[in-house]
């Protein structure tokens, strides 16, 4: 699995360099929207790299090589899922470095690097890939491209829209209850509460992808 992830990273040397520019760009543009800025930034970088790897795979029709090698399909699918956290870690590290540099230089920028933003990023990245990957494993990147693009924008705009809707209408019972409930919990507790359904979604997505990939013909 390690070698498959390494392969995905190696073949995206250019995309990795480009993502440094994106991190710098997002650091400045998304700094004024709070923790959501970090979430969106990490999601965008991970999206670019995770789907970029699939795009290159599709371009070369390289699944043919992977299937012809002594590699289990479970390993191929699992390595894709694990790779997203490598990309996310890379993006988080990038934003953290930007945060450190800006603090060191005492620039007047309020960089949103905190635990809430990080949890948001991990949730967003997991959900996004859990929905996108089964489509890619079934149809290949190109055929799933439009659907994935729609999912991405629904995520970004829908997610931020939902948050602002809930906060504007905080008289709503649900949101009030939710806010009160969450306010009384520590960050770690919230993290655990969110992680359980998240892991379940991820596991379901993995098995759906694996099922699609086992049936796929090349």
């Amino acid at each position: 699995m390690y070698h498959l992830i390494k392969k995905d990273i190696l073949m995206q040397k250019r995309a990795l360099k480009l993502s440094i520019l994106l991190i710098i760009f997002f650091t400045f543009t998304l700094s004024n929207i709070g923790p959501a800025g970090l979430t969106i930034g990490v999601l965008a970088i991970t999206y670019q790299l995770a789907l970029g790897a699939s795009a290159l795979e599709d371009k070369n029709n390289s699944d043919i090589i992977l299937i012809s090698l002594p590699i289990k399909r479970t390993t191929i699918v699992l390595s894709k899922y694990v790779s997203i956290y490598f990309y996310a870690a890379y993006a988080i590290l990038g934003f953290y470095l930007a945060y450190l540099i800006i603090n060191l230089l005492n620039l007047r920028l309020d960089i949103p690097f905190n635990f809430t933003g990080l949890i948001g990023a991990i949730i967003a990245v997991t959900l996004f890939c859990s929905i996108s990957f089964p489509l890619i494993f079934k149809y290949g990147f190109l055929k799933a491209k439009m659907a994935n693009l729609i999912i991405f924008f629904v995520f970004v705009f829908g997610g931020t829209g939902l948050v602002s809707y809930l906060s504007e209408n905080n008289k709503l019972m649900l949101s009030q209850d939710l806010i009160t409930f969450l306010k009384n919990r520590s960050d770690i507790e919230i993290f655990i509460i969110l992680m359980v359904p998240l892991v379940l979604i991820l596991i379901c997505s993995y098995f759906v992808s694996l099922n699609f990939y086992r049936k796929r013909e090349f």
Partner: peptide
């Protein structure tokens, strides 16, 4: 069907 973006050595190492 090899990954065109990799070098010969990188592909072999994978």
């Amino acid at each position: 069907h090899f990954y065109e973006e990799l070098t010969v050595k990188e592909m072999k190492d994978v």
